[in-house]
Amino acid sequence: MSERSTPHHGHDHAACIELFTRLSEYIDNELDEVSCRDIEAHLADCPCCTACMETLKRTVAFCREVEERPVPATLSRRLQEIVAGLAAPKPA
């Protein structure tokens, strides 16, 4: 895919596959500087890998935005009763 002259991007290109396996680490800033630079150089020259990276990044962003549901009142009550039972003085 880094060979821009190729009319069709064969995604079996070794560099693309290598990048594909490390995309999450790249997104999470868990790679060393040299690896990051290599990936950025590849991305700059490979629109397919850029699209792949952006969609993965967006997937992660969606997960972080998942809204939380409120705790059902029945559960809160049940937990309060349990704690009250635990805190109650034990019969001698």
């Binding site: 991007h9 699209a51 952006e54 935005e65």
Partner: peptide, 15 residues
């Protein structure tokens, strides 16, 4: 056909 060379709208537009 599975490979796209453009970032789709769902990943390009503001979240």
């Amino acid at each position: 056909a599975d490979i796209s060379d453009t970032v789709p709208q769902w990943a390009a537009q503001p979240l």
